[in-house]
């Protein structure tokens, strides 16, 4: 499977990374190089193999339903590039 430029643009849009027009070709070539190399995995017979998702524990530990966090709006907002009072601010979103 190799990517055309339309697909490269679509992925960049999904990933919210602005690609300048002159970057598309280079990115396409690099991605296709990597994908071509990855292609060898299709040769492996994985019939009946359960996918392995995580690295470790077999099940979740459950914590108690107790309020132990929050109540620190200043710390939460301290790194914000734009804030308005107690809110984070972004360009207006139209739904």
């Amino acid at each position: 499977m190799s990517l055309d430029t339309a697909m490269v643009r679509r992925i960049a849009s999904l990933a919210r990374i602005r690609l300048e027009e002159e970057e598309v070709g280079r990115m396409q070539a690099e991605l296709n190089g990597i994908l071509g190399w990855i292609e060898q995995l299709q040769a492996v017979d994985t019939t009946g193999v359960e996918p392995m998702a995580g690295g470790g524990a077999v099940s979740l530990r459950l914590r108690d339903d107790v309020v132990t966090d929050g109540g620190m709006p200043e710390k939460v907002l301290a790194n914000a590039p734009d804030r308005a009072g107690g809110y984070f601010a972004v360009p207006k979103v139209v739904e």
Partner: peptide, 30 residues
């Protein structure tokens, strides 16, 4: 970082998940 985000976005996207991501998870199990 951009390259890897792009690759990662692609292998999880609709139509490619099984061929790439799920396949990789199975080989990881092997």
């Amino acid at each position: 970082v951009k390259r890897r985000i792009m690759i990662g976005t692609y292998v999880l996207s609709a139509g490619y998940y099984d061929a790439y991501y799920l396949k990789a998870q199975k080989i990881r199990a092997l």
